[in-house]
Design a protein around this nucleic acid. Structure first.
Lengths: 163, 163
DNA sequence: GGCAATTAGTTAGCATGCTAAGTATTATAT
DNA sequence: ATATAATACTTAGCATGCTAACTAATTGCC
């Protein structure tokens, strides 16, 4: 409620191991997804790639999808190869840039996608239980701030190593 | 501020991909730790194990530490072997239970610990920037709720698979 | 007391993140 | 116009989580 945060509060804040807690929740969330989709022959990484490609729209390049997911190209590249292998996706040459690949769902992929979306909603419903919409909004915003801070920090150390 | 959350708000909440965001923040946080401690010959997993053993107190068993960290024994077992190899920790037989191992810092480990704590504080300071103590508290509580929900969900699907 | 179930720990192998390094193409700068 | 830099992607190998399966010790039940 108070706007002014005193020194004691600031120091106490630094004792909170948010990073570890975020890690724990992430692992649990991954387990939940894995349990939910493995009977479909899916894994968590493939599941995310499918859903985010849908959000981005078919025809997106791998680079664009990696950006959207917040992972590096090599990580995505492997996952996409598995999805292509499973006949969920196709890689098509980019119309003008011969380096790039554009991503499209196969028919089987479209069908899988529908099931994945359904299960995603079920899991979210379970995980957001007892959280108010306001709390979810707040959580999202605080995580956004941490994400920005982390990127800034990493950029700073990277350039300083370069110097 | 409103206590009553309407249906529209609830449905909108389910569209928020918190899991993915938590994953992104977790990866960034891990990168930040890695960048900070790798010059000390440490990694993120070893760093966490060291700090949490300190919190738990020397003499803790591996099982207790795994519980504290929220990871499974095999994951921890490997990390601890690396720390023993690096002469940071020692495994001592439990005084009464011959199955169990108790963990103690070596002198080198104590010294490392001091440096790790220092760097941890620096990183938190950077990552919590622009977050109020209240926001940090709120974040922690919301993550707690998600964590509990996830455990409940996983337990439910596990027993249902057993049946 | 003695066998069954549980618990602590390990090893093996998979999933998924990363960086480093290599190829092919495109963009830039002189 | 060409040489250099940047970009898109892949491959290889490490870090760290998991489950499955194993051993050894302990607990519990009759």
């Amino acid at each position: 409620m108070t706007e002014i945060t005193n020194l004691t509060e600031m120091k106490a804040m630094l004792k909170v191991p948010l990073g570890n807690q975020i890690g724990r929740v992430h692992r649990l969330w991954r387990s939940a997804i894995t349990a939910s989709v493995q009977s479909l022959g899916m894994t968590e990484a493939r599941w995310t790639a499918m859903l985010h490609l849908k959000m981005l729209g078919e025809g997106a390049t791998q680079q664009a999808l990696a950006q959207e997911l917040g992972i590096e190209m090599p990580s995505l590249s492997r996952t996409l190869s598995q999805l292509v292998e499973q006949d969920m996706l196709q890689r098509q040459p980019h119309p003008t840039d011969k380096r790039a690949q554009c991503l499209y769902f196969t028919a089987a992929g479209q069908h899988m996608l529908a099931q994945l979306i359904e299960r995603t909603m079920q899991i979210r419903q379970a995980l957001y239980q007892d959280l108010t919409p306001a709390a979810v909004q707040q959580l999202m915003q605080s995580l956004d701030i941490m994400e920005r801070n982390a990127r800034t920090l990493l950029l700073a150390t990277a350039t300083e190593n370069k110097a």
